[in-house]
Design a protein around this nucleic acid. Structure first.
Length: 422
RNA sequence: GGACAGGUGGCCGAGUGGUUGAAGGCACCGGUCUCGAAAACCGGCGUACCGGCAACGGUAUCGUGAGUUCGAAUCUCACCCUGUCCGCCA
């Protein structure tokens, strides 16, 4: 959500932001929003003026009654004013509702260093490690041979895109989660949280999944809950409608959760094996900080996600997303992509984003800079560290040995309980 | 799921239709006093929006949303949440 004052003071900034994202039709909507903002204020002024008159009349009624004087005239006048207020309120609500609809659908303003354009304008910033030459078997063949996951039975009990991990496959997943949570809590100062997998509508609006992307979410039939597409939603919304102590920022929390995505419209694209599934596990990092700190916090959070891939000894690259490829709520996003030689592809396993005050404004998360000071919106950031199925795929392919077995990277061995699979 | 009880400002806690944005206390900020601190005393102290360069003025806000009324923290209805007991249960 944008500051409504932007419409008055810097509508150009908003328009330009929409264009940099390639959303020209949204740029047009900004014009309409500017009009509505003006209408809204006019209505508010008229409405509040009438309310002040009514309050004055009511007070006069009270005074007269107390003094034993007649108040019929004042009562009649106040009744008329009441009718006027009803009409003015309706007009105000109408403008406000249309304005809210537009505002709720406008994505965040990309930071200045985010390249304009679509995903073809993404920039690879750096690469760590050396991608392995093509040759290893794709992970679904390894998985089938070693009995690590069971796609057919996952489809039987739920549907296609729901994976059953078995044996060493299930244990690998558990080991990865434990490794990541231990790193983030013991070494990087995150507080661990275990969060609900279902959240209410307000939470989904707070982080920006709703109202625009309702079709991508699983919803329950009899309860007003949505399955979380990422732990970002419950974690970030933890402090919704709260004023945080400025001295305690930045806050950092991590949590593991299952993530549920309908992936509507993604049929047929990279769907083989573990590449695109409806439910997957992920360890998420979330940070809350003062606005001036968010650029540094963004780099820090990204480094924590990178560290996971380094300990797993998986070659990866860091990609700065172009404006058009940057998520709705994000102002700037780094994607981390691991290289999977079996499918000969870079796989996105993390998105590390800074949301500036966009989510904080929607979710009303503020902080008080100093005692007695005015509350300000925090900046929120989050990143996956890291999403599992594709990392599992990358491990099975990158660490695949000539004899068909899979080497477990040293950092993971104490968690996995063995140095190899197969 | 059932039965009660309750949701008031950062916290505690008064307040059942008329200058109540809301007594009192705590916390916090500024000041007096002090070598300094504590105590005491004085003053200040929610949030959001609208207008205004500002000073300031206005409106809203007592879980949420509707309603009654000239006027609602106070009355009505619905919902949400919390607590306790019962039932059920990993």
């Amino acid at each position: 959500m944008h500051d409504i004052r932007l419409l008055r003071e810097a509508a150009d900034t908003l328009r330009d932001a929409m264009r940099r994202r390639g959303e020209d039709e949204l740029a047009v909507l900004v014009e309409r929003a500017v009009e509505l903002e003006q209408e809204r204020r006019t209505a508010i002024q008229a409405c509040e003026e009438r309310k002040a008159a009514r309050n004055a009349a009511s007070h006069e009624v009270a005074r007269r009654k107390k003094a034993g004087e007649p108040a019929d005239e004042q009562l009649a006048a106040a009744r008329v004013i009441g009718d006027e207020i009803v009409a003015l309120e309706a007009r105000q609500a109408e403008a406000q509702d249309e304005l809210d609809d537009i505002l709720a659908g406008l994505p965040n303003i990309p930071l200045p260093d985010v390249p304009a354009g679509d995903e073809t304008c993404n920039q690879v910033l750096r690469t760590w490690g050396t991608p392995r030459a093509a040759g290893p078997a794709p992970h679904w063949e390894v998985g089938a041979r070693l009995g690590l996951f069971d796609l057919e039975r996952g489809a039987k009990v739920a549907g296609s895109g729901f994976i059953v991990y078995r044996g060493a496959g299930a244990r690998l997943q558990r080991a990865l989660i434990a490794l990541m949570l231990d790193m983030h809590t013991r070494e990087f100062g995150y507080e661990e949280a275990s969060v609900p997998y279902f959240v209410n509508r307000d939470a989904m609006v707070g982080t920006g999944q709703l109202p625009k992307f309702e079709d991508d979410m699983y919803a329950l039939r009899d309860e007003p809950f949505f399955a979380i597409p990422t732990a970002e939603v419950p974690l970030t919304n933890l402090f919704r409608h709260e004023i945080l102590d400025g001295a305690r920022l930045p806050l950092a929390m991590t949590g593991h959760s299952a993530c549920f995505r309908r992936e509507a419209g993604a049929a047929g694209k990279d769907t083989r094996g573990l590449l695109r599934v409806h439910q997957f596990d992920k360890v998420e990092l979330v940070r809350w900080c003062a606005p001036e700190d968010s650029p540094a916090q963004h780099e820090l959070l990204t480094s924590h996600a990178e560290e996971v891939l380094q300990r797993l000894e998986l070659p990866y690259r860091v990609v700065l997303l172009a404006a058009g490829d940057t998520g709705f709520a994000s102002a700037k996003t780094y994607d981390l992509e691991v290289f999977a030689p079996g499918v000969d592809k870079w796989l996105e396993v993390s998105s590390c984003s800074t949301f500036t005050d966009f989510q904080a404004r929607r979710a009303n998360i503020r902080y008080r800079p100093e005692a007695g000071g005015k509350p300000r919106f925090v900046h929120t950031l989050n990143g996956s560290a890291v999403a599992l199925p594709r990392v599992v795929a990358a491990i099975l392919e990158h660490h695949q040995q000539a004899d068909g077995s899979v080497n477990i990277p040293p950092a993971l061995r104490q968690y996995f309980g063995s140095d190899r699979i197969g």
